[in-house]
Simulated assay, not measured.
Amino acid sequence: MEHKVICALVLVSMLAFSTLVETQSETCAMAPRERKNCGFPGVTAAQCTSKGCCFDDTVPGFPWCFTPKTIDVPSEDECEF
């Protein structure tokens, strides 16, 4: 019985830890309407990227220098039963 309790506690701990281990990543791939301005009028690609922002001047009417989108990346460790 004691081994089952220990095993259950280890499993619960691992599951709790794995939810905390999810990481976040950034991407510049998003719809133009999702872009949040990160630059100023006349900003160059070099100035934009040096601020950690995305630069894409191919879509008129939307910010060219914009904040990257944050996405959650689940951990690769999954408990299989």
Rank of each mutant, 00 (worst) to 15 (best):
M14I: 12
P68R: 10
D56M: 05
E34Q: 05
E26Q: 13
V59W: 11
T27Q: 03
L11I: 14
V73L: 12
T58I: 06
T27G: 02
D56L: 04
M30S: 03
Q47F: 05
I6W: 08
R35Y: 00
T44A: 01
V21E: 14
P60T: 15
L9H: 10
L15D: 04
S18Y: 08
V73T: 13
A8R: 13
S75L: 05
S13G: 13
T23W: 04
F62G: 00
V10W: 14
D56F: 04
I71N: 09
D72E: 11
F66H: 01
D56Y: 04
P68F: 06
P74S: 13
I71L: 12
K69L: 08
F66V: 01
P63H: 01
T44Q: 02
E26D: 04
R35E: 00
E78N: 07
P68I: 04
M14H: 08
G61H: 14
H3V: 15
Q24A: 07
W64F: 12
C48M: 03
M30H: 01
L15S: 09
V73K: 10
C48S: 02
L11K: 14
G52T: 03
D72Q: 14
F17E: 09
A46H: 07
T70V: 13
A46M: 08
I71K: 08
D72P: 06
K4H: 12
G39I: 00
S18E: 12
L11N: 07
H3Y: 09
C48N: 01
C54S: 04
A8Q: 09
V59Q: 13
L20V: 09
W64E: 09
C7W: 12
L11C: 14
C48A: 04
Q47H: 09
A8Y: 13
N37S: 07
C38I: 00
A29E: 10
H3R: 12
V43S: 01
M30L: 12
V43A: 01
I71V: 15
